[in-house]
């Protein structure tokens, strides 16, 4: 119980330390920031160690090592050595003479991720968006939906024109691009307005912590 109270006091003081940044940079903030960075970097390292390194690398290799010693069998878990190999190459950056070998690891990470994202982008940002935008321009008996659909097609069309890079935005083409910008601004405004409320609720959550958990002014 008393541990809890100390915890809440520490939390409250650090909260005020962070909020004090709104006034200006000060030792109180610097202290909170330095502690935050140290604790978070340590936390991240430990968590990746236990949650990824041990189960994915260590456990798999010890399994195959055990299999080799006990039954003289080479099982498929040795394949995780490939990851270890690239990992060690990565660490070779610390040795200037052979540091260039770390490029192999970078190539592996960047190459596989790029290949993976190629199809992912094509699906989610390409084809799915096209399917979502193809709408009937005229919906019988429903003027509202018809106008809405026409606006969606026009908005997407002019928005795409804005993103044209190999043609100068002049004349009618430039005009269409300008209409595209208006649509973009509506999108930005809508996203902005949409987020304001959720940000406010975060602040209210913090105030609640200070005034009810810590100061107990609000029950």
């Amino acid at each position: 119980m008393s541990g809890d109270i100390i915890g809440i006091w520490i939390g409250a003081i650090l909260t005020l330390g962070i909020f004090s940044f709104l006034y200006k940079d000060n030792p109180f903030y610097k202290f909170s920031e330095a502690l935050f960075v140290g604790i978070s970097a340590g936390y991240w390292f430990v968590v990746t160690f236990w949650q990824y390194f041990v189960p994915k690398f260590w456990d798999n290799l010890s399994l195959s090592f055990h299999e080799l010693v006990a039954n003289g069998r080479i099982d498929y878990h040795w394949i995780y050595l490939v990851g270890g190999f690239f990992g060690v190459l990565m660490l070779l950056r610390l040795v200037p003479k052979i540091g260039w070998l770390s490029r192999w690891s970078l190539a592996f990470i960047v190459g596989t991720t790029a290949g993976l994202q190629f199809t992912r982008y094509l699906e989610s940002n390409g084809i799915r968006q096209v399917v979502g935008t193809i709408k009937p321009l005229v919906v019988g008996g429903n003027l509202g939906t018809s106008i809405g659909n026409i606006i969606i097609v026009v908005g997407t069309f002019t928005g795409l024109i804005y993103f044209f890079f190999s043609k100068e935005h002049k004349g009618a083409f430039g005009g269409a691009a300008r209409v595209g910008v208006w649509f973009l601004m509506i999108n930005f405004g809508a996203m902005f307005g949409y987020t304001v409320m959720s940000r406010m609720s975060l602040l209210i959550g913090r105030m609640d912590y200070l005034f009810s958990d810590w100061l107990k002014l609000i029950k």
């Binding site: 190629f118 940002n125 809405g148 026009v154 908005g155 928005g159 595209g180 509506i186 999108n187």
Partner: peptide
Amino acid sequence: LTVPNMAAKRAIAMGIGLGGI
């Protein structure tokens, strides 16, 4: 949210898709 916002969102998403791939 459902009409002009959606239109712009699609245009932005498609552009990002093309740039990304």
